[in-house]
Computed example of a mutant assay.
Amino acid sequence: MFYLVCFDIVDDRDRRRAVKIIGEYGYRVQKSVFECPGLNEKRFLKMRNRLEETIDSLWDTVRFYRLCKGCVQETEFVGVGEPPKTALARIF
């Protein structure tokens, strides 16, 4: 499944940790937005749990948007960047 992960994290240290975690599962497309293609339920839950342990739930938020293949193919953007990739180039 393809996930779009967005966050708003107040503390710089927590934000750096979150970026590192999400970067293990996807790639950054904007400062606080990552695209995570090809995640199965187990990997998604692992990422989510790690993020829950990292952020301050009173101040921070992380949102996960699950997109079907058809929705990903219909993604539009303007400006710099590339269309969403449907699979990660690197192997974990």
Results as ranks from 00 to 15, higher is better:
Ala87Phe: 14
Gly79Leu: 01
Glu41Ala: 15
Arg50Phe: 01
Ser57Ala: 11
Arg63Ser: 14
Glu52Leu: 12
Gly81Tyr: 03
Leu39Met: 14
Arg63Asp: 07
Arg48Gly: 05
Thr54Gln: 07
Gly38Ser: 13
Val33Arg: 05
Ser32His: 01
Cys71Gln: 14
Ile21Ala: 00
Leu45Tyr: 14
Arg48Asn: 05
Phe34Pro: 01
Phe64Tyr: 15
Glu82Ser: 14
Gly79Ala: 02
Phe2Pro: 05
Glu74His: 13
Cys36Ile: 08
Phe7Lys: 01
Gln73Trp: 09
Lys31Phe: 06
Asp11Cys: 13
Asp60Thr: 00
Phe34Lys: 02
Ile22Glu: 03
Leu88Val: 11
Asn49Ile: 05
Thr61Tyr: 06
Thr75Trp: 12
Leu39Ser: 11
Glu82Met: 12
Ile21Arg: 01
Val33Lys: 07
Leu39His: 12
Phe7Tyr: 15
Cys6Val: 04
Glu74Phe: 10
Thr61Cys: 11
Gln30Met: 01
Arg16His: 14
Met1Cys: 08
Ile21Gly: 05
Glu41Gly: 14
Arg28Ala: 00
Cys71Met: 13
Cys36Tyr: 10
Asp11Gly: 06
Arg63Thr: 09
Ile21Lys: 00
Leu45Pro: 09
Tyr65Thr: 08
Arg48Asp: 06
Glu41Lys: 13
Tyr65Glu: 08
Tyr65Phe: 15
Val78Lys: 11
Phe77Ala: 05
Val19Glu: 06
Lys46Thr: 13
Phe7Gln: 03
Arg48Tyr: 10
Pro84Thr: 07
Phe34Leu: 02
Pro83Trp: 06
Phe34Thr: 03
Lys20His: 04
Val80Ala: 13
Glu82Asn: 12
Ile21Glu: 01
Ser57Lys: 15
Arg48Val: 01
Ser32Trp: 00
Thr86Glu: 15
Phe64Ala: 11
Glu74Tyr: 12
Tyr25Glu: 07
Ala87Glu: 13
Glu53Thr: 09
Pro83Arg: 13
Ser32Lys: 02
Ile91Gln: 00
Lys42Arg: 15
Asp60Val: 03
Glu53Asn: 14
Met47Gln: 09
Asp12Thr: 10
Leu67Tyr: 06
Phe2Tyr: 14
Gly26Ala: 05
Asp8Lys: 04
Gly38Ala: 14
Cys71Tyr: 08
Tyr25Asn: 04
Glu53Met: 12
Arg48Leu: 05
Arg15Glu: 00
Lys85Thr: 10
Phe77Gln: 03
Ala18Asp: 05
Lys42Pro: 06
Val72His: 04
Phe2Trp: 15
Glu24Val: 00
Ile9Arg: 01
Arg90His: 10
Arg48Glu: 07
Asp56Tyr: 08
Trp59Gly: 04
Asp14Cys: 08
